[in-house]
Amino acid sequence: MSKVVVVTSGKGGVGKTTSTAALGAALARAGNRVCVVDFDVGLRNLDLVMGAERRVVYDLINVANGDAKLAQALIRDKRVDTLSLLAASQTRDKDALSEEGVARVVDELRGLFDYVLCDSPAGIERGALLAMRFADEAVVVTNPEVSSVRDSDRIIGLLDSKTLRAEQGQRLQKQLLLTRFDPGRASRGEMLGVADVLEILSIPLLGIVPESEEILRASNIGAPITINAATSQAGRSYEDAARRLMGESVPMLVPGEKKSLLNRILGRRAAA
């Protein structure tokens, strides 16, 4: 059975595209047929993060409008052959994407893939609403920072009201992916902790991705971190999150549990 998952956040720059690429590659490496779809019309970047920017000929809008066949627009990954990309258009016309067109494309993708990951644009405008419209599940990407948490809360409200599933009274599974997490700062009380964010947003946790140099390194060379540095801490976090998305039960490790004695003392004090 095919699953359509929207990767969304409200706020920009929290790691939606990075997470879409990393989760998509991890799911594909686990043997699933996966398509990652860029919904950020006008500001496409998933192609760049996936290292396929020079291979884009047709895009989502071409297929949605019937100007190209889906098979012509899908870009198969050169490293993982079960992974494909459907790029966003660079047109400046935000209304170029119609709901009927997206419905047709998503329907066709369901027939070809086990997972369809929709990389949402930032904001709560048309593009973001279309990205979530036909989703079965949502990954809400959040940084432990006030504006990101607030925007995620807003997005959760929209997932519960503006998606087709919500309108039909069906349940839409929403899970939190906490990214750019700094365990040291959280333990010193300088950054919202995992429990804080979970308590405020009250949706289940899909994973915790620590702030990592590996992520920038991976995007520099155009390789999802789960391909380029799968054994790094951030890479492993995404691998675990992908397995949880597949329904496996994987113990949740809070990054940076190995703490120095001094950190442990400071951490206890902050918690007390």
């Binding site: 409200g157 959280a186 010193r188 009380g189 919202l192 902790g193 405020i200």
Partner: peptide, 23 residues
């Protein structure tokens, strides 16, 4: 040894109040 910048509790409280209202 006291953390100088334990601002996370402030962030949490502000968010809880704000979001209760916004929801």
């Amino acid at each position: 040894f006291k953390p100088r910048n334990a601002t996370a509790p402030v962030a949490r409280e502000r968010l809880q109040i704000l979001l209760a209202h916004e929801r």
